[in-house]
Structure formats: structure tokens, C-alpha cells
Amino acid sequence: MDDTLRMTPIDFCTALPYHFIMDDNCRLVQAGKELFNHIPKELLQPETPVLRIFEITRPQIPLDFDNICNFINAVFVFQVRASPSDMRKQRENLEGSESASLNQAVLQQGCHLKLKGQMMLLSTKKHLIYLCSPYVTSINELMQFGMRLTAMPMHDATRDLILLNQQRLSDVEVNLQLEANNEQLEAMARDLEEEKNKTDVILKDMLPAQIANKLMEGEHIESCEYEEATVMFSDVPNFQQIVPVCQPKDVVHLLNELFTRLDRLVVLHKVYKVETVGDSYMTVGGIPDFTPEHAENIGHAALGMLWEGRAVRDPVSNKPLQLRIGIEIIIY
């Protein structure tokens, strides 16, 4: 009984789907079954010169038996070279098939397929076998050649290489996305800080400084009473006659010019502007920081407002603007 383990050519071509064997004349003897998906069938017939099918890209040596034997320990990279006429013939044979679109993609890319592996001299000393895998490193390259990961044997390390490289690419993409998100968050934080600063400025303009600071620090504001203060109201007596005959922008310009002048006087005389409503301008002295001369300060501010009002022109009559001022001293 012969105990020699034998393998049929079909089993061998299935186990090593991308291999090929050539003789000492560099003619094809046998090819793996997956090569038929990338190379025209008529080129993979026995006795076909390998030089018609492949070219060596590494090492850079002529494709002949002796040169290959001299570099037998080197890593070999072969590139498929299929003539346009051969590709057209196979395309005509594939027309009408259910997977025509996939086959067309394979044909478009098949002439660029590369194989990477090693050459081994067989025991006959007249044959070389090329044990190889597709020279691809990512899922995208597989798709370019119309290949599937399942087309590679389970024992082929190229499967793991592709999956590991794909995982690396995914990690890089995730890291880039995280960096982009971090940059976006930093930009949002800067914008929020700018908006907060603007809000703080507005708050300080609307409220006394000590009150605004407490609000910004989140402290609770307790109401308080003042035993004495001086309150002043001022307005434009003929404002209601000005509004109907003027453009809105002219009215805004009038109030802006007037209130800018009055604001300067408020700061100069150390009184506090409470609010403005329409043409009314409310000011208080002795609040929130008590000063004994609060009535005197309000008086000086009122005289200054009368003079500043004259510097503003009535848009209707083109005469100096007249202000009406009322002052009340409150003492409990």
C-alpha cells in the first residue's frame, strides 16, 4: 500500500490560488485559480511565456530562469501585464453576465495587479514555483482590483495585514476626527469666553460695579435701603413733535448724540445713570455709593446737561435742543 500523500492539481490550485509554476524556458506550467479572475484565460494556458503575462518589478532583473535562480532568496514582486486586445476579448466573453459590472471593474484594474512572494526551485531542478499573494494592504485596494477578502486563503498572512492596516487607518481617521472635534470645542470655548466678556461689559454698563461683580461671581444680591438720595429726570419737551416728521435713523442719531454727552457728565460728576426710556434720562446721586454732597453733584450735572443740550441741534427747527430737568432730594 502506497502511503504517499498526493494532491491533485485542482486541490493545489485551490490551496494556493495565486501561485504559478514555470519551466526552465520560463513557460507557464500551472496557475492558481484566482489568477483567472485578473488575467485573460487564454494567457494562462500551459506553454505561454511568462514574460507575456508578468513583468518583474522587484528585484530589477531580466525575467529568465538563471537570473531568478541567482536571486532565489529575494522577495519577488510581479506585475500583471495584459494586452488591450486580450482584455477586449475577455470583456466580450463576459458581456451579459449577471456580474458584468464587477467583472468590468476587474478588467479595468487587472493589468495593474501586483503579486508579492518568493520563488522556490522544485526537485526537478527545471521548474520554479512562485508562492505569492496579491500585493495589497487595504480594503480600498481590494475593491480597486474587484477582489474580496474571502478570495485569500485563511492561512495567508495578507488577510491579517489588510485587517490590521484597515484598523490602523480607522484609528487614524478616528484620531483626526477627535482632533477636529477638539479644535471645534476649543473654538467654541473661545467664542463663549468672548461672548461672556461682552455680557460682562454690558452688565457693568447697566448696573453699579459692585452689583455687577457680585452677579458675575454668582453671589446673591440683597436689597438695601438708603436714608437719603437725590433723583433727577431729564427729557426733551418737544420730542413728540420731532418723531413724526423725522426719519427713524435721524431720531436714533439725535438720542445717541444727546445721551453720549449726558453720559460723559454722569461720569464726570460721580452720579449714577439708572436708565433711559425714550427721551427720558434718569440719574441718581448718593446711590449706590453714598456721598454727602450728592445733591450738589446732581446740581452740577443738571447745569452741565442744559449746556450740553444746547450743543445738539433740533432736526426740525435746527435750533439748540431744549432739555427739561426735574430734581428731587429724598430724605427719610
Rank of each mutant, 00 (worst) to 15 (best):
D2W: 06
T8G: 15
I10R: 15
A15K: 10
P17F: 06
M22I: 02
M22P: 01
D24H: 08
D24W: 00
L28S: 06
E34P: 01
P40S: 10
Q45L: 09
L51D: 04
I53K: 10
F54K: 02
E55G: 02
R58Y: 00
R58H: 07
Q60A: 04
D64Q: 08
D64W: 02
D66H: 07
I68H: 12
I72D: 01
I72V: 02
V75Q: 12
F76Y: 10
Q79Y: 03
Q79V: 04
A82C: 13
P84K: 06
K89F: 11
E92I: 12
E92S: 06
E92Y: 13
L94R: 15
S97I: 09
E98G: 07
A105G: 12
L107E: 07
L115A: 07
K116P: 01
K116S: 08
M120S: 03
M120R: 11
L121Y: 03
S123G: 04
K126L: 01
L131N: 08
L131Q: 03
P134R: 06
P134G: 02
Y135H: 09
Y135V: 00
V136P: 05
V136T: 03
T137Y: 04
T137G: 02
L142T: 04
M143Y: 13
G146L: 11
R148C: 05
R148L: 12
L149D: 06
H155I: 15
A157N: 11
D160E: 14
I162N: 01
Q166C: 09
Q166H: 12
Q167L: 15
R168M: 14
V174T: 10
N175P: 01
E179V: 14
A180C: 14
N181C: 13
Q184H: 10
L185H: 10
E186C: 04
M188D: 10
R190I: 07
N197L: 13
T199P: 00
T199S: 09
D200R: 13
V201I: 08
L203I: 06
P208E: 01
A209W: 02
A209L: 07
I211D: 06
A212C: 01
A212R: 02
E217I: 00
E217Y: 01
E217D: 04
G218P: 04
S223G: 06
S223L: 10
C224K: 13
T230I: 04
F233L: 07
V236G: 06
N238P: 08
Q240E: 07
Q241L: 12
Q241E: 13
P244M: 09
V245W: 04
V245S: 12
C246K: 11
C246A: 11
K249L: 14
K249R: 15
N256V: 13
F259M: 12
F259T: 13
L262A: 13
D263H: 04
R264H: 14
L265V: 15
V271D: 10
V271Q: 11
V274F: 13
E275H: 05
V277D: 05
D279M: 09
M282S: 06
V284C: 01
V284M: 02
P288S: 00
F290E: 07
T291H: 08
P292T: 05
H300F: 14
G304P: 03
M305Q: 01
S317M: 04
R324L: 09
I325A: 05
I327R: 08
I329D: 02
I329F: 02
I331H: 09
I331Y: 09
